[in-house]
Design a binder for these strands. Sequence first.
DNA 1: TTGGTTGCAAATCGTTTGCATCCCG
DNA 2: CGGGATGCAAACGATTTGCAACCAA
Lengths: 130, 130
Amino acid sequence: MKSLKKAGLIKTQPRMLILDIFEAQEKKHLSTNDIYMALQRNKTPLSLGTIYRVVNQFEKSGLIQSHHFSPDNAVYELCAADNHDHMIDIRTGKIVEFHDEIIEKRQKEIAEEYGLDLVDHKFILYGYFN
Amino acid sequence: MKSLKKAGLIKTQPRMLILDIFEAQEKKHLSTNDIYMALQRNKTPLSLGTIYRVVNQFEKSGLIQSHHFSPDNAVYELCAADNHDHMIDIRTGKIVEFHDEIIEKRQKEIAEEYGLDLVDHKFILYGYFN
DNA sequence: TTGGTTGCAAATCGTTTGCATCCCG
DNA sequence: CGGGATGCAAACGATTTGCAACCAA
């Protein structure tokens, strides 16, 4: 369970509600609209404005991480200890996470070769799951 | 030199102008606004609406390829024979292309392992160039 | 009390689109 | 001539933001 206090954020009701959504959801990658609708279902609605603000604060605090798998909208997931990459089914939108040491290692070597001080990376595979 | 006819597109003045911009530019990755301004400089202005339409047609025809390196806006580049990946300087926006066989090979293996029929991929390294 | 937080609605900004006009074949 | 292409301005949709009311410490 993540801590708002540890993240340097006042413990408010909206922030707790949103954090709960992330921890309760079977789906790990949520759009602001997913969060909005989940809160509606829970009878604890919040405004979209607040959801956007909270999600941005969470990201700055390192609680969650954003992804732009589609140019249309961002999705967010709780930060995990392992840094994993993603593969996405173009038809269904299904997201599968994976971690690969060969890729991790190789990207560091490439960055080194090119004199790039590596800060972040994005590795996404798109296709169709059998 | 790319061919509009071969791409199944009528050879119109706006489309030729835009294709010329891509082929003349030292910078390979252009936003719609980059194109817009380059056309202004060339005294052959086009409306942004047309630029967006042409760029989308070019992409569907396989003449150019779009990238969303930043969530803010797309950039486009002529399709090259080699499929390369990108590293980006977070500070300057400088883009460097690279091709790596180990990555290419490994991503196919990973897709196979997970039963993903690989269609496309995105591999971007973000950091600071020395 | 008081400064940070929220709701609401308006503003932003990249991108798309409807429509009348124009141009390529 | 006829259908696709273009310019213009309006529409769109995700995200941000100004402001007044509200809540946590």
